[in-house]
Each structure stands twice: as C-alpha cells, then as structure tokens.
Amino acid sequence: MKLNLASIPRVKGISGAQFREEYLKPGKPVVFEDLSAGWPATEKWNFDYFREKAGEIVVPLYDGKPAKGRQNSHGPAMKVKMKEYIDILQAGPTDLRMFFFNLLQNCPELVEDFHYPDLGVKFFKKLPVLFVGGEGAKVVMHYDMDLANNFHFNFAGRKKVILYPPDQTKYLYKVPYSIVSMEIIDMDNPDLEKYPALALAKGYEVILEHGDALYIPSKWWHFIKYETPCLSLTLRSLPTTPGKILEVLNNLIVTRNYDNLMRKIKGQAWIDYKNKRAIQSTHKFAGIDK
C-alpha cells in the first residue's frame, strides 16, 4: 500500500479571472510558476540576505517533537537571533523551524521586496508571514485555524507539500479538539499497516522550487517536508462568509483554549485519550476493523 497522491496543476501567465473561475471558486490547489516574477524578493531572498537585513532580530524556533503531558501545544523550543538560526540551518540537517514570522511587524523594510498579486483576491495585508526550516524538518499534517486561502511563495531551497481536501478528513486520523492529524504519523513515510485509512485518502503532492507559488485553498490539509534549508512567504486571504467566520472564532476562542486547559488538568492522559479517539473514529468512518 502507498498514499494515493496526484500531481498539482502548474500554470504560467494565468489571469485573475481564470484563476478565480478554475481554482478559487471550486477550491482547487494550483502552482503558479511566475506569480513572483519581477519581485525583488525573487532575486534577493536567500539566507545571506536575511542575515544582513534581519540578523539581530530574535526569533522563536519550533522543533518536531510533539507536546507531552501538560506542555502547551504552541510553545517554541528556543529563541535565538536570526543570524544564529541561519548558522544552524547552514551547518546541516535540523528540525528547527521558524513559524509564522510577521514581516510587517518585525522587519517592515522587507515588505518592499514583494507585491500582492492582482488576482481579484482580498489579501489580509497586516499578516505577511515567513516560514523557514532546516533540511529534513517536517510540519505535521494540519489545516489552518483561521481557514485562510493561502498563497505560499517559495524562495531559497526546496520543499515537498502533501495536500488533502476537506472531504478527505475522515481518513486522516484527525485529533479531536484540534486542527491536526496524529503527530506520531510521519506522512513522508507513513506506517500504512498501523494507519490503513491513509491509503484510502485521495490527495496531492508537489515539490516547490525557487520561484514557485502554491495556492492552498481554505481548510485544505497540508504536510510539509523541507528537502533542503528553505525560506518561504505566505500571503493570506481570510474568510468572509458568516459560517466560516464563526468557525474561525470557535477554533481560536473555544477549541484551542479548551484543549490547552485539558492539557493542564489531565496532562498526558488527555493526549493519549485524543489519539485513541482519532484512531477509533477514523477506522469507524473507513469501515476498518482493527
């Protein structure tokens, strides 16, 4: 058995109207090969440039270890200066990642290096965020809590992305009271004997190179593996429909806080309970008797 993954379409020279009709409205992913053409970032953005421009900024780093016991599920592993983090990245493989780094707040001059694409999409311009990771680093399968439509621009390095649409959630071992799959599952090399429902899910896979931009529709699951040290920018378009706004508020205010409260009260027993529920509910939906 292996994962059922198709290729994501790649386009050049697509108009905003064509994008909205073929990808935005139906909620389908696509890779733009030229959306950042002409941006200063496309030419400038590498690790030496960020060492020069943002080297003294202290950044939080996250590792690939699942939170245990009463640990908060969103806490950083450490904080270092950007230039020290770049040294770590260039020294060899590391699972340390820089997550959701707001360029506008932390390094506003770099906002001049890119432009918001003219696709007929309303971008949330207060939140241009940077994602950086070391060779071999992985991001657990999840969907974004704010249900944004994401435009993920890759610059330095190469990464692999696996995507699943929302209707495949039933096969993905979604953990209750969260927006993640079970953290113990390595989607780069999953144990399909232990987690057989994954083989039933229909998803997509792509390798992003320098200059590629991936459109990730709202509420689509995504897993990321950094094949090399990698630096990417995400521009977000937030939901506007009442139903999705209510779901976002529930995710941010109710679900996340309840989960962290239960971690503090029950510790590892709460995590074990959720993982057990994830397996039971997934196998029930998939009709798997294990």
Rank of each mutant, 00 (worst) to 15 (best):
52 E>S: 11
19 F>I: 05
108 P>R: 01
154 N>E: 00
286 A>N: 00
281 S>F: 13
60 P>Q: 13
96 L>P: 00
117 P>F: 01
17 A>W: 09
266 K>R: 15
123 F>N: 07
213 A>W: 03
159 K>A: 00
196 P>A: 01
194 K>F: 08
230 C>G: 09
5 L>D: 06
74 H>R: 13
132 V>A: 14
89 L>P: 07
217 P>K: 04
7 S>Q: 13
245 I>F: 11
253 I>G: 02
73 S>H: 14
139 V>M: 09
157 G>I: 00
165 P>R: 03
135 E>H: 11
71 Q>S: 14
217 P>G: 07
124 F>L: 13
249 L>S: 07
262 M>H: 08
36 S>A: 15
265 I>F: 09
282 T>A: 05
38 G>H: 04
78 M>H: 03
167 D>W: 15
208 L>K: 00
207 I>A: 04
137 A>V: 04
104 L>G: 07
211 G>T: 06
262 M>K: 11
261 L>W: 12
144 D>E: 10
131 F>K: 02
186 D>S: 12
143 Y>R: 10
265 I>M: 15
137 A>Q: 09
82 M>S: 07
107 C>Y: 02
147 L>F: 10
75 G>N: 09
64 G>Y: 06
42 T>F: 14
155 F>M: 06
7 S>N: 13
10 R>C: 05
16 G>D: 11
113 D>I: 02
98 M>W: 10
228 T>R: 02
287 G>L: 01
191 D>L: 02
247 E>H: 04
251 N>C: 08
114 F>E: 01
64 G>T: 12
198 L>G: 05
177 Y>S: 09
25 K>Q: 13
42 T>Q: 15
224 I>H: 00
258 Y>C: 03
142 H>S: 06
18 Q>S: 08
97 R>A: 13
214 L>G: 01
5 L>R: 03
74 H>Q: 14
137 A>I: 06
160 K>E: 10
194 K>C: 06
14 I>Y: 07
18 Q>P: 00
156 A>E: 15
8 I>R: 00
80 V>G: 08
66 P>C: 09
10 R>V: 02
192 L>I: 15
48 D>H: 12
221 W>C: 02
240 T>W: 13
67 A>Y: 15
93 P>V: 12
196 P>Q: 12
165 P>V: 09
79 K>F: 12
256 R>M: 10
239 P>Y: 02
88 I>H: 00
256 R>G: 03
172 L>V: 10
288 I>T: 01
65 K>N: 08
78 M>R: 15
236 R>D: 11
209 E>I: 00
225 K>E: 14
125 K>W: 03
284 K>N: 05
187 M>T: 04
11 V>P: 10
286 A>L: 00
56 E>P: 02
176 P>D: 03
82 M>A: 08
189 N>V: 03
250 N>I: 03
121 V>W: 03
227 E>C: 07
155 F>E: 06
51 R>I: 05
